[in-house]
Computed example of a mutant assay.
Amino acid sequence: MLINILLLLGGFVALIFGANTLVDAASSLASRWGVPSIVIGLTIVAFGTSAPELVVNVFAATSGSTDMVLGNVLGSNIFNVLGILGISALLFPLSVKTNTTWIEIPLSLLAGICVLVIASDIFLDGSAGNLISRSDGIILLLFFLIFLVYNLVVAKSGGADEEMETKNYSTGKAVMFIILGLAGLVLGGRLIVTSAVEIAEVIGLSERVIGLTVVSIGTSLPELATSIIAVRKKNVDIAIGNVVGSNIFNIFFILGVSGTIVPLDINPSSIFDIAVNILAGLLLFIFVFTGRGRKVERWEGAVFLLGYIAYVTYLIM
């Protein structure tokens, strides 16, 4: 048990180190080749922050741990809103830009509803079981493509000349760090999946619950760090935009890729988690449109955090 816990922690360290190293090296290489900052930010950096969830899900899907696949995505999204935004709003009230208010927050809510629809085969089609099929995965990826194009259009219209800080690596050094980053991602993802499955068996919790709690929180650490740093620097819009964008990425891209690789059998209990994810998105939408201005106040952050504690307690009990 102790060895598996150490392997799990080591997996998270390797995973996050690999993601950061890969982002820095790939961004440096892209900048050296003349790729605009806007494209680097919306592709390499965005994909890099979602790399932990993606790698863990690919390993979980290919090893047959499908409960962990959906659990990681839903758990990350629920933790992002209720946990990360809860902590961030307690530190400083979060203001929201118009685009995030009118487009990205509703789109994040729509993504959650999409999962409910594609995972409700028993209710909608009278099927023997719920399944996210390869065709469902491809549909999610098509939604992701639309979201990516939208981001490019918005970013270009909002200031394409803004420069982004990148590491100044030589080509050889950048390639070496890219390989090192990929190795860290692969090693970390493998360690997390195998040790999490072992821990679940030892303590008697399901892979679904482990995925919804331990694994999802671990893979969301980059978003947590980014949001807290942004709030401390009073860049509060970055904090909420980071979380909402990550949630859209998780469902449309990561779950889309996972479902395309291997069709995912859906545990009936996961419908509750899907509903909690939708409720968290709906709560964010309501909080933004209540009170003074487009803000998430401190007391609303406390509601988020208490809601997350209650949800995790329910899962464990």
Rank of each mutant, 00 (worst) to 15 (best):
N80S: 11
I84A: 06
I84M: 04
I84E: 07
L85V: 05
L85P: 03
G86N: 15
G86W: 15
G86H: 07
I87A: 13
I87Q: 11
I87H: 10
I87E: 11
S88K: 07
S88C: 08
S88R: 03
S88N: 04
A89S: 14
A89K: 12
L90E: 12
P93L: 15
L94W: 07
S95V: 06
N99V: 14
N99G: 03
N99L: 08
T100S: 14
W102R: 05
W102S: 08
P106G: 01
P106I: 01
L107G: 02
L109T: 15
L110E: 08
A111V: 15
G112D: 06
V115T: 13
V117K: 00
A119W: 04
S120T: 09
S120V: 05
I122C: 04
I122L: 00
L124V: 06
D125K: 10
D125V: 01
G126W: 07
G126S: 00
G126N: 06
G126C: 11
S127D: 15
N130P: 07
L131D: 02
S133Y: 04
S135K: 11
S135W: 10
S135E: 11
S135F: 12
D136M: 09
D136N: 12
G137A: 09
I138N: 05
L141K: 10
L142W: 09
L142R: 10
F144T: 08
F144K: 06
L145F: 11
L145T: 10
I146A: 15
L148I: 04
L148H: 06
N151R: 07
N151P: 09
L152V: 13
L152P: 01
V153E: 05
A155P: 08
G158L: 02
G158F: 02
G159R: 05
D161W: 02
E162S: 14
E165T: 11
E165L: 15
K167C: 13
K167L: 13
Y169W: 09
S170R: 10
T171S: 11
T171P: 02
G172K: 13
K173I: 08
A174E: 07
A174N: 03
V175P: 03
F177N: 11
I179M: 04
L180Q: 07
L180W: 03
G181L: 06
A183H: 05
